[in-house]
Write a protein that binds this DNA or RNA. Structure first.
Length: 867
RNA sequence: GGGCGCAUAGCUCAGUUGGUUAGAGCGCUGCCUUUACAAGGCAGAUGUCGGGGGUUCGAGACCCUCUGCGCCCACCA
């Protein structure tokens, strides 16, 4: 073998580049089925992941990429460590976000009273003037639903492309959408079972209501927003004519709905007046003074106006004090058209002017009336106070009475609540402190889970109601669908024993017109993906699942409700682990949110830094830890990926049979020391991954890899040239370490790792076995890392001396004096030849001493041309 | 009002059950085109570990307390 053939990189090795790796390897993995689930594996061999189905609404944001990449790194580690990973992907396309998006994109609204128009084509709105001025187009329910399906199908393709670009190792044969047939079947089946067991029930009750979307909302979907409001002090005349009682209210427009005044039972100012009556100003309605401990003597004037219904406390007072119901709001948030029958003549006379007003308009009018009547005392005092909103809504929630479906969630059942807390404690949480949020939520529930929504694009309740002879629906005894017929649409299908022409007729039936909230379906993702009641074989291999990854903000919704459904249906936890990702913060450390307008989309960053670069940034954050968006970290990741390619290229240029060197024997002390050190890093990384601490595995691996490049590679590269035993040992060391390092970086940098692996190995690195610390230890033949540590330390001193002297690294060293302990001098002697070559050192003097000290005498600089 | 988390270099963050002189990257400064890598490499400077108490032979880490920030929850007249 000639000298040239071993001293330059082989020409056929490609010039390392990160460009295009994403598309290249995504296609290759798809073709090879690299991530296809092997369903011959048994439950103990399988690692199943309950992937969060992202809401399909336009664009993914960087926060999603952050969380999903962290899960993917775990999935890749699990796969390499020998588990068969079950990794599906879902799309949450069911529900309000999709309806809202369809309304905006196409300029349409749903009117369920319209007939279906087959073949109707609706084009998305453009930015043109014509489209902007176009009136809203009203569509039948079926046409509207068709558009929902059409748009989500487009969005799902976009989403899948992003996920493929960031390298999620999902099995793309295993996708679901929360509105698809399978999900509707599972959601309806689970509901029917809840109903049969008494866990689901319908109830007519006051509920929080969004007047824009015209639907009920659940406790979990509420958020408080600080909202401008104002105190109005109103005078209520005592019915016996002996004076007035003043109350403060922020909702004067609800005065016609006032049913009582309430004070604290111990409040000396009011307790003796309990049972007496006052007269509402302007409207002249007589209402009682009542006592209840929730009335706070320190708030306002210490006595409050109870209306049906101004806030949730009103509901409690109304229920516990058996007050009458006097609702004045319609479901669209406007005042009733017809004059309320409880108003006396004086109040009734005012109504025609108020009827149909929005709440703001009504407030102005009633304030004017109060002012005229002299019943508004003092100034209106503006305040900011928290008001309940639907998290996706724009106007404060109102409270209306309506018939809704609920699932018992422990809010009214301490035993069930305790079971749910206990189930949460059997889960392994990553990080553990997130468990507290779950426990607080379970403990703080005050109503059962309201699952019905008065919307269109969702899973229908699979029930119908008989219509009695007088034409009224009978809600007490619903007709339920048969499980074998699911999914059903009671709006378009008749129940067994009836025909479609009996719909709405006396003696006939009507279908339940509500749909389930999205969470009522997504709380069943383990049942959906594992084939509950549809694929018993798959279910046995995948359920209960291993991991539920998700965001912290949906512990109260998704995590809790999934736990609840699984407990109710299976009596078990749906998974054994849950990992909760942190937030993405913008560079000012503010949470990224659409409402703040600081959302960052992933595409430009992926383009600029490459998927491996973006992944590196995301994977530096531990589970549950918030992270600021940081371009620098992405650059560092990109550089690490490029370094992996370059180092691989270099090692693979060390001979024709470098792949064979993986099976070689490492004999030289320096090489053995390196493998000993590597074995330790593998052990640490493995332990870290098993504890879901992927970021620690990355940090340890990365540190070793840079030291490997800076020190070990430099120390052995000259020895590796050649064909003697020492050269073979170096090549074996290089090959074994490279193979290990590529695999250890593969979960983090799947594209660069696969590219470098493909240069010398068969098959995908992502199906290659995770390196074994024990094997590496055996190959090190009992060595410790000391020889490498000493040699690297001395080489660093030599480099430093040259750097301080502002000389090049190839500058020869005339003499090196090394002082150190006897043990470390012995270790140094083992690698003396390597250090001598790497540092270009002539003479070496060793002096026994207490600690390391190095004196470097450089060859004198040649006379400089310009000095 | 209650709870959880965070506070370490100019910036972003490590620092596992307490244990030598607290680390990395970015940024900054200097040097080097060297045979894998100049979109690179090598090297250098940089800290009252938020404040105050306490436990301990020893505290960035454990306890108490205060301050600031973030998030979650809460019946918000």
């Amino acid at each position: 073998m000639s000298a040239e053939s071993t001293t330059s990189p082989k020409p056929e090795l490609p010039k390392p580049t990160l460009e295009g790796l994403e598309a290249k390897w995504d296609a290759a993995w798809e073709t090879a089925g690299t991530y296809h689930f092997d369903r011959t594996k048994t439950r103990s061999e399988v690692y199943s992941i309950d992937t969060p189905p992202p809401t399909v609404s336009g664009e993914l944001h960087l926060g999603s990429v952050f969380g999903y990449v962290q899960v993917d790194a775990m999935a890749r580690y699990m796969r390499m460590s020998g588990r068969e990973v079950y990794y599906p992907m879902g799309w949450d396309d069911n529900g309000l976000p999709t309806e809202r998006r369809v309304q905006n994109v196409y300029g349409v609204r749903c009117d369920p009273s319209l007939p279906y128009e087959p073949g109707l084509v609706v084009a998305p709105l453009t930015d043109s003037k014509d489209d902007k001025n176009k009136p809203v187009q009203m569509l039948s329910r079926s046409n509207f639903l068709e558009l929902c399906h059409e748009l989500t199908a487009i969005d799902e393709v976009t989403f899948e492309n992003v996920w493929r670009t960031v390298g999620l190792s999902v099995d793309w044969n295993l996708t679901y959408a929360t509105i698809d047939d399978r999900c509707r079947r599972v959601a309806q089946r689970a509901f029917l079972r809840n109903l049969a067991r008494g866990e689901a029930y319908a109830s007519e009750a006051p509920t929080l209501w969004d007047v824009d979307f015209q639907t009920a909302v659940a406790q979990a979907e509420l958020e408080d927003r600080d909202t401008a409001s104002a105190y109005h002090k109103l005078a209520f005349a005592l019915a016996d004519g002996s004076g007035v009682i003043e109350i403060d209210t922020t909702r004067p427009e609800l005065l016609p709905a006032c049913v009582a005044l309430v004070a604290h039972p111990e409040d000396p100012r009011f307790k003796d007046r309990a049972g007496t009556e006052v007269v509402t100003p302007v409207f002249g309605v007589r209402v009682p003074i009542v006592l209840h401990p929730l009335a706070d003597p320190d708030k306002g004037t210490g006595i409050a106006m109870v209306c049906t219904f101004g806030d949730t406390t009103d509901i409690i007072w109304w229920r516990e004090l058996s007050l009458p119901t006097r609702s004045i709001l319609r479901r669209d948030g406007r005042l009733l058209e017809e004059t309320p029958e409880w108003l006396p003549a004086e109040g009734a006379a005012l109504w025609p002017d108020l009827a149909g007003s929005g709440t703001k308009q009504a407030r102005r009018k009633i304030v004017d009336l109060l002012t005229e009547a002299g019943a508004l005392i003092g100034d209106i005092r503006p305040i900011q106070h928290p008001v309940k909103y639907y998290e996706k809504g724009d106007r404060p929630l109102e409270i209306v009475t309506s018939r809704q479906w609920y699932i018992r969630n422990g809010a009214k059942d301490p035993a069930r609540s305790a079971e749910l807390v206990a189930a949460g404690r059997r889960l392994d949480w990553h990080p553990d402190f997130m468990r507290v949020r779950y426990e607080h939520w379970v403990g703080g529930l005050n109503t059962d889970w309201l699952i019905s929504r008065q919307r269109h694009f969702g899973v229908p309740f699979p029930v119908w109601y008989r219509i009695d002879a007088s034409g009224e629906p009978v809600f007490t005894d619903p007709i339920v669908a048969d499980e074998s017929a699911l999914p059903v649409d009671p709006q378009s299908q008749a129940p067994v024993g009836f025909s479609e022409d009996q719909r709405g007729m006396p003696g006939g039936f009507i279908g339940d017109s509500d749909v389930m909230d999205t969470w009522a379906t997504s709380s069943l993702t383990p049942q959906i993906v594992c084939g509950w009641e549809e694929d018993a074989d798959l279910f046995a291999r995948t359920f209960p699942m291993d991991l539920r990854p998700q965001g912290p903000e949906i512990i109260r919704t998704w995590l809790f409700s999934t736990m609840l459904r699984s407990q109710l249906e299976h009596g078990t936890e749906p998974w054994t682990n849950t990992s909760i990702n942190g937030w993405i913060l913008d560079p000012d450390r503010k949470k990224m949110a659409k409402s703040k307008g600081n959302v960052v989309t992933p595409a430009p960053l992926l383009d600029k830094h490459g998927s491996d670069g973006v992944r590196y940034w995301a994977l530096n954050a531990a589970p549950g830890i918030d992270t600021a968006i940081d371009d620098n970290q992405m650059k560092v990741g990109r550089r690490l990926a490029l370094k992996l390619l370059n180092a691989s290229r270099f090692v693979l240029g060390q001979g024709d049979d470098i792949a064979g060197a993986v099976g070689g024997v490492v004999t030289e002390p320096l090489d053995r020391a390196m493998l000993a050190k590597l074995a330790g890093v593998v052990a640490e990384a493995t332990t870290a991954f098993e504890g879901y601490q992927y970021q620690r595995a990355l940090e340890r691996t990365e540190t070793f890899f840079w030291n490997f490049c800076d020190d070990y590679l430099e120390l052995v590269k000259l020895r590796a040239y050649g064909d003697d035993e020492a050269s073979k040992s170096a090549k074996a060391g290089l090959a074994i370490a490279l193979s290990s390092l590529q695999r250890m970086l593969a979960p983090f940098l799947p594209f660069a790792a696969e590219e470098a692996w493909s240069w010398w190995q068969q098959g995908s690195i992502h199906r290659a076995p995770w390196p074994s610390a024990a094997d590496l230890h055996a190959q090190a033949h009992g060595a410790t890392a000391e020889v490498l540590d000493v040699a690297a330390a001395v080489l660093a001193e030599v480099r430093k001396a040259k750097s301080v002297a502002k000389r090049g690294m190839v500058t020869p060293v005339d003499k090196l004096s090394l002082s150190d302990t006897a043990d470390r001098l012995d270790a140094f002697r083992e690698a003396e030849g390597d250090v001598r070559r790497a540092g270009v050192i002539d003479a070496i003097e060793l002096v026994q001493a207490d600690q390391l000290s190095v004196v470097v005498e450089l060859q004198p600089a040649p006379p400089s041309a310009d000095s």
